[in-house]
Simulated scan of single mutants.
Amino acid sequence: MTITEVADKSTIKKGFHALSDSIRIEVLDLLRTQELCVCELLEVLNISQSKLSFHLKTLKEAGLVRTRQEGRWIYYSLNLPQLVVLEQYLADFRRMTSLVPSRKCCD
């Protein structure tokens, strides 16, 4: 059974869409080692709060980040299980390519 059969395809689609933007990839890179609040992300990324909020919402809707509220601050961290789903989805292609015979075209 492949991950596509287990995971909802819209979840996979949202995950790869979220990974299609350089700012969102940069956010994920910043969250690799620690949880960060919005103010810390703003400081490093040097973008407007509204722009960051849009990207964080996209990452959250894709399930790639988790949030935790402490007082008035929201802290973001990676949601590793969802990243594993995307990784496994791609790994399924690697495993399947050895099973699919090559086809000659346009001789």
Score class of each variant (00 low, 15 high):
Lys104Thr: 10
Lys60Ile: 00
Phe54Gln: 13
Ser102Lys: 15
Lys13Met: 10
Thr58Leu: 06
Arg32Ala: 11
Phe93His: 08
Val27Ala: 09
Arg72Ala: 04
Gly15Ile: 02
Gly15Trp: 09
Asp29Asn: 08
Glu40His: 05
His17Lys: 09
Asn79Met: 11
Ser50Asn: 03
Leu41Tyr: 07
Thr11Cys: 13
Lys60Arg: 05
Leu31Glu: 12
Pro101Val: 03
Glu43Gly: 10
Leu99Lys: 13
Leu83Glu: 01
Cys106Tyr: 14
Glu70Cys: 06
Asp92Ser: 04
Asn46Pro: 07
Thr4Phe: 01
Gln49Gly: 03
Thr67Asn: 00
Gly15Lys: 00
Glu35Ser: 05
Lys14Gly: 01
Ala18Cys: 07
Lys51Phe: 07
Val84Arg: 11
Glu5Ser: 12
Gln49Glu: 06
Leu31Arg: 11
Trp73Gln: 09
Val65Ser: 00
Leu83Asn: 03
Ala7Lys: 11
His17Ser: 09
Val44Glu: 12
Ile25Glu: 05
Gln34Ala: 15
Asn79Glu: 00
Arg103Trp: 04
Glu40Gln: 10
Glu61Asp: 14
Lys57His: 05
Ile25Thr: 07
Ile74Cys: 13
Leu86Glu: 00
Lys9Gln: 14
Thr58Met: 06
Thr67Lys: 07
Arg103Tyr: 02
Glu35Gln: 04
Leu52Met: 11
Cys39Ala: 07
Trp73Glu: 13
Ile25Phe: 01
Lys51Asn: 04
Ala7Met: 12
Cys106Gln: 15
Ile3Asn: 09
Arg66Tyr: 06
Ser10Tyr: 07
Leu19Glu: 09
Val6Gln: 08
His17Gln: 13
Tyr89Gln: 01
Val44Tyr: 07
Gly71Met: 10
Cys105Tyr: 11
Thr67Ala: 00
Glu43Phe: 03
Cys106Gly: 13
Lys14Cys: 13
Val85Gly: 09
Val100Gly: 11
Ile23Tyr: 04
Ala7Gln: 13
Thr4Met: 14
Pro81Val: 12
Cys37Lys: 13
Glu61Lys: 14
Arg72Gln: 01
Leu30Phe: 12
Leu52Ala: 11
Ile3Asp: 00
Thr67Asp: 02
Arg94Ser: 08
Arg24His: 10
Cys37Ser: 15
Glu61Ala: 03
Cys39Lys: 02
Arg94Ala: 05
Lys51Pro: 01
